[in-house]
């Protein structure tokens, strides 16, 4: 699966989200690519799951990807739950 971590600039919180997601998929042995990007670029990229904050989640919804708003970019629980819920769909 392809996971996109999205923030305003593409090198702050999205990188932290990517670090968290990378830890989660390693621990749970999930096959996934995680990429960090900014909101401007994100709309033109394809992904299965988009992790972002509540502001950008609203803007990114409506495409093919499942969009999940994460409250704490460092929370493995939150990110893990988002990935598992996607896989269970």
């Amino acid at each position: 699966m392809k996971i996109l971590a999205v923030c305003g600039m593409g090198f702050g919180s999205s990188l932290m989200l990517k670090m968290t997601a990378d830890r989660v998929i390693k621990k749970k042995d999930i096959k996934a690519d995680v990429e960090a990007t900014d909101i401007g670029t994100a709309t033109s990229m394809s992904a299965d799951l988009i992790l972002t904050n509540s502001e950008f989640a609203k803007q990114l919804q409506g495409g093919n990807a499942t969009v999940v708003a994460i409250k704490n970019v460092a929370s493995e629980d939150e990110v893990g739950k988002a990935i598992e819920e996607y896989l269970e769909k």
Partner: peptide, 10 residues
């Protein structure tokens, strides 16, 4: 412009 997206955790 973009909203309080810099709030990265509670």
């Amino acid at each position: 412009e973009l909203g309080p997206y810099i709030v990265i955790a509670p």
